[in-house]
C-alpha cells in the first residue's frame, strides 16, 4: 500500500512536470517517465502483459518518435504565440469544471469491494496465456476486424503520402 502511494505521487508529479516545464524536450522526457510510472501501476494491478506493451509501444516507440519530431521542428524559432489571459481563464474554468465533475462522480460511485466480488484472487489473470485465450476466443471478431482498420489507415497513408505533381489550387 505504501508503495502504491509512492508510485501515485511520482506519477502525478511527473505528469504535472510535463505541463509545467518550459523546455519541450524536458516535457517529453517527463512524459516517458510518467509512462514508466503507469507501467508500475499495471504491475500492481497484476497486468504484466499490459506493463510490457505500455513500455514497448508508448515509452519506446511513440515517445522516441515524438522526441525526433520536436528536435526537427526547432521550437525556438517557431514559438507559438502565448495565449491571451481570457483564453487561459476559459481553459482553466473548463478544465476545472471537468475535474470537479469527475471527482464528484468518483466520490459518489460505490466501487465493489474485494470481498463482494467473491474474494477470489487469480494470480494468473494478467498473464499472456490468459489474455491470448480471451482475445482469440471471446474477442476474436473485433480482433480480426481491427486489422481492417489498420489496413485502411495504411492504404490511406501510402496514398496521401505520395508526392503529387502539378499546381496547387484553391
Amino acid at each position: 500500500m505504501q508503495f502504491w502511494y509512492f508510485l501515485t505521487a511520482l506519477t502525478l508529479l511527473s505528469a504535472l512536470m510535463v505541463v509545467l516545464s518550459k523546455n519541450p524536450i524536458h516535457s517529453v522526457l517527463y512524459l516517458v517517465f510518467t509512462f514508466f510510472c503507469i507501467s508500475g501501476h499495471y504491475v500492481l494491478l497484476n497486468a504484466q502483459f499490459l506493463m510490457a506493451v505500455n513500455i514497448i509501444v508508448y515509452a519506446g516507440a511513440i515517445m522516441v518518435l515524438f522526441l525526433f519530431v520536436i528536435m526537427m521542428l526547432d521550437l525556438r524559432r517557431n514559438m507559438p504565440d502565448s495565449k491571451s489571459n481570457l483564453t487561459k481563464l476559459a481553459g482553466a474554468i473548463l478544465g476545472g469544471t471537468l475535474l470537479v465533475i469527475l471527482v464528484a462522480v468518483m466520490r459518489k460511485t460505490q466501487f465493489p469491494q474485494f470481498s463482494q466480488m467473491g474474494g477470489k484472487f487469480d494470480t494468473q489473470t494478467g498473464m499472456v496465456e490468459n489474455l491470448g485465450q480471451v482475445l482469440f476466443r471471446d474477442y476474436l471478431l473485433p480482433f480480426e476486424l481491427v486489422s481492417i482498420l489498420f489496413f485502411v489507415a495504411m492504404v490511406g497513408a501510402v496514398m496521401l503520402g505520395k508526392r503529387e505533381a502539378g499546381e496547387r489550387n484553391f
Binding site: Y139, P142, L149, G156, L160, E164, G166, N169
Partner: peptide, 28 residues
Amino acid sequence: NLIMLFVGLEILSVSMYILTGTDKRNLR
C-alpha cells in the same frame, strides 16, 4: 457489443478522413 461499435465507427471515420483528403492538390 460496444467494442464492435467502437471498431466499426473507427473504420468508417478513418476511411472518411482519407477520402476527404484525396484531392491532394486542392488546399481546401
